[in-house]
Write a protein that binds this DNA or RNA. Structure first.
Lengths: 174, 174, 174, 174
DNA sequence: CATTAACCGAGACGGTACGTCCTGTCTTAAC
DNA sequence: GTTAAGACAGGACGTACCGTCTCGGTTAATG
């Protein structure tokens, strides 16, 4: 038999509440209880479909945030990427990373999320850099710089970073 | 009057227990209660000297981990740095970063910790790269790559990363 | 149109499961969810026909347990009654009584159940005791002794109780 | 070492709240959560000292309700006993009995509580009835009648019951 | 060398989130 | 229109940790 179908309304309310609370209180201070409450849903409804706060958040990110595809030129790609990672998203993904440290099952899931972004940047760099550059490392350094600034906040992740990184990479192919 | 002096034994037992538990259970799963218990100390003794788990951890890191000074050549510096950040320390600093996201007071403290490492790398790169390279961005990209791998673990932070980064930077000055 | 008729199979399965679970886990630990599951029936099917666990139980009792009629002599009546009230039934009716304490609607229903037994004993005692004995009180004391032992279990509800009560009542008419 | 001593204030507030809520909502509808809340105490403080709602209630009864001693004459003893068992106490002890059905450990504890009352009545009856009456059974029938009425509420537990029981017992010794 | 004040361990305090279970209702497709 | 299935909002369960507090007991510099 079939049973009552899953409520799409509740699902979206939960994902939306997750991001909203994250923006308001910071990832660490968001609780599943709080998400359920804010979404006007029962706590069990959250637990039925997600195991942890991190699972909710990662689905919320994929649901509400569309990533660059890798078909743009380098500077455009970086601009788009950096714009997205500012705001709430940056805080969320840093928190997710922290949770992934102590939950290997989730770390794998997280890696999948990250890899799709890596592949996109990889595609862009493959078209941009000369053939003898270590593309994997280049990806690590570009995204690394972004993450590093997102976390430590010693400098902004903005247009000028996109320019500077583009310029730096240009030197590699000269 | 002066009263009983602080017990150095307890202090060291707490810092030691903090790192040990972190290695065993992961930063997220360590509790102040657990640290006090493992250190054979009262809970209040921890709270008397530190405000949060993060404060304990960051002091534990500075107490037990001596960092490269920046007087070495680039490859040696990176080797030493990457060796340190592997093992337990990597997990700890990622956890600390996560906590810093939602505690600005602690974020400032954390930034101080990070900046000392940045200055050291900056000094090394200043001696290594040609004068027209954006050193700050270079620091971001090198440490960024390290952090990015520490968090996402799609690739190790090891000797070969040190080699590859050294080679990549060499291209910038050619 | 009339639609699908009520499933007698489900009804009996539910009542049977109710008593079985009661015997296995004790009245307090039985849940409507558990009953439905054990009966292989949907949960709504239970709620459609009964309001509460107590309603199910009381119907299960009346469906599967046939009581003495009051046409026997005193000792036989007591023997039969006490035999019935041992086993699972005792536990069930004590649980029902407890539920009745906080649900007056159900308490009324329960009283009807109890009263039928009271009338039967009353009939027997009317034939047995001399005319000037307070029969209502006598019923209270006889059934009371039984209930008291069922609940507190300081002594069994068995043949020797039937004998002793019979003897005690005999003294009242001497 | 010693640690902070138990708070007598909290203990009394919890026991008091337990009885009050019982009187207001009925034993079945009282929750440990509700007791803690009403007592202005943390939930863990209840769990620290009692395993279940039943344990709290039975201690509340012994703390706030002083029982007849058995030194009175029969009618006085019964009056006192029945007066006590009216009101909230009756509902409480019926609920306790129900819980005891599915928790043997607690049933033992409950039996101890009941036995002290039985011994008192036994002492009274020993002075009142002629020597050849089965005292244990007499206790069962007297307390049984009381319990039976408390639970089923087909008749009150009051002064007239005390009179009637006294009269009934008098016939046994004639 | 006694006083004394800050330290220490232990552990209870009021709170809050956890993850689980059950309640009573609702919504499907199947019969 | 009843059925089995199962999701829904809600709320209590018992546990764990938080950060605070209150104990008795322990140091060492001060007076």
């Amino acid at each position: 038999m079939v049973g009552r179908p899953r409520s799409e309304t509740s699902r979206r309310a939960i994902l939306r509440a997750a991001l909203d609370l994250c923006e308001r209180d910071g990832y660490q201070n968001v609780t599943l209880k709080g998400i359920a409450q804010a979404a006007g849903t029962g706590r069990q409804t959250v637990y039925r479909w997600w195991r942890t706060k991190a699972e909710v958040m990662i689905e919320a990110l994929t649901a509400f945030v569309e990533a660059p595809t890798g078909s743009e030129d380098l500077r455009t790609f970086l601009l788009e990427t950096f714009r997205l990672s500012g705001g709430a998203v940056g805080g969320v993904i840093v928190g997710l990373m922290a949770d992934a440290q102590s939950d290997e099952a989730f770390a794998v899931r997280m890696r999948g999320f990250i890899d799709s972004r890596r592949r996109a940047l990889h595609a862009v760099l493959a078209r941009t850099l000369s053939a003898d550059v270590d593309l994997e490392l280049a990806v690590d350094m570009v995204f690394g710089a972004m993450w590093y600034r997102l976390m430590n906040r010693h400098a902004p992740v903005d247009e000028s970073l996109a320019d500077d990184v583009t310029a730096m990479l240009a030197r590699l192919s000269s």
